[in-house]
Design a protein around this nucleic acid. Structure first.
Lengths: 232, 232
DNA sequence: TAAGGTAAGCGTCGTGACGACCAGAACCAG
DNA sequence: CTGGTTCTGGTCGTCACGACGCTTACCTTA
């Protein structure tokens, strides 16, 4: 029994995943997602939380969600290991590289992983794929978006989360209206962000409201064709 | 490593779950959901499929979905067992009781289980709860509704699935329009069902189209307040 | 200081989904 | 034949939401 954690974060406007380079066989030298064996005295959630903490130093239990179990007998050449996949979303990793037992860690664009540019050990490619699909769903139904941004954020930052995760373009005006319309999603702080180097009107800074814990305000597809959206 | 299968079906207009009575310690004599140990040579999906087959004789791999893993060290008093939960939806159980190793099997209304009227062994209550929540979501996003009904069905039967699983009332006319509107959901067979004993106009019989494999046409909440629907 | 560029914020309009509601059709029991 | 029940089809009003343009505020550069 192992627990693997797919750690996602926003970096340079795109979605990144934290990978570690394996220091031992099998798959020595290849990239993999962090993880380890579940201890007999802890629950799966606790094991995932511990692995995340060991790897990043972040205590982020609230946004750690289990998304799947993988038990193919051939997934580990050494022995029969069943692993449970967890998804963690961090707002900023920064000093993440201070992992305890990782030889080397890096933030890699998920697009590179999904394209196969970067080969992953074991069946970690499939696990990452499932995690991405899960975060896309979570973003719509549980409003996990604020986990990607800091304590205070502009609506443009929040919008870029949706655009990066879903790979779509959202109208800034409509996005703003959907989010601001109802109480509980975002709370204005009264302060303003620094405008970018290109100038422009400074954006208001908001902080996340309670409502994000139970469903987001932005939907993946327009209501008009939401029905066809999931077709092949 | 074990695999437990929550088998759901429609019976008398309400949602039922298949339970077996345990023939040995621990929790001897208590009701539980069927399951068993994963064999080293099979995958988790294969193990779940085997358990389902052993218990019901049904080969229903297409609608067997994994929904969670449970690894609390105290969930089994004997030893440290991690179990993976699977959800199976059957259209009609009938001769299901011909399980191989179950002492006794029964279809129980899920409402009785959720209310606590029927005590379950281990942490199976939580597992069933999670399965119910999962099927409610699956019903909306993957159109699993036709798995509950037979090869041919009336729109009233299909509607009763949504009403039973979600616990709502749907307008028959609007339901019909939503389902029939687009091609691929239901295909008219030209035949008609027998009217009930109370009379009434006989309903047309339909069969499921391809589109049900990738998203259902009926949404849980009206678009007007879909946003607030998942709030506490 | 002035001009031009950029991004944020705000308003408006049109479309379309969807629920509420009603009327007719088809069939039964008595 | 009459009343009851269920299915089918239609209309209408509401409202979410995308498209789009205008204004506001701040930047850089001349």
């Amino acid at each position: 029994m192992t627990v693997d954690v797919v750690i996602l974060t926003m970096s340079e406007g795109t979605l990144h995943v934290l990978l570690v380079r394996r220091g031992e066989a099998p798959f020595e030298g290849m990239w993999a997602i962090p993880g380890g064996f579940k201890r007999p005295t802890e629950t799966l959630d606790e094991a995932a939380k511990r692995e995340l903490s060991e790897e990043t130093g972040v205590d982020a239990a609230s946004l750690l969600t289990q998304f799947g179990a993988y038990g193919d007998p051939e997934r580990d050449p050494r022995m029969n290991v069943v692993t449970v996949g967890y998804l963690a979303v961090l707002r900023d990793v920064g000093a993440v590289m201070a992992g305890t037992d990782a030889v080397e860690a890096a933030l890699v664009p998920v697009s590179d992983v999904l394209k196969g540019t970067i080969g992953l050990a074991f069946d970690h490619l499939r696990i990452v794929r499932d995690a991405i699909e899960r975060v896309r769903i979570e973003l719509e139904v549980t409003g996990i978006a604020t986990a990607f941004v800091g304590a205070t954020f502009t609506l443009a930052e929040l919008r870029s989360v949706y655009e990066a995760v879903w790979g779509v373009q959202l109208d800034a005006a409509n996005f703003r209206r959907s989010v601001v319309a109802e109480d509980g999603w975002v709370i204005p702080t009264g302060r303003r962000a620094q405008p970018g180097s290109a100038g422009g009107r400074p954006a208001e800074l908001y902080r996340a409201g309670r409502a994000w814990k139970a469903g987001g305000p932005i939907h993946r597809l327009p209501a008009a064709n939401r029905r066809e959206g999931t077709r092949p």
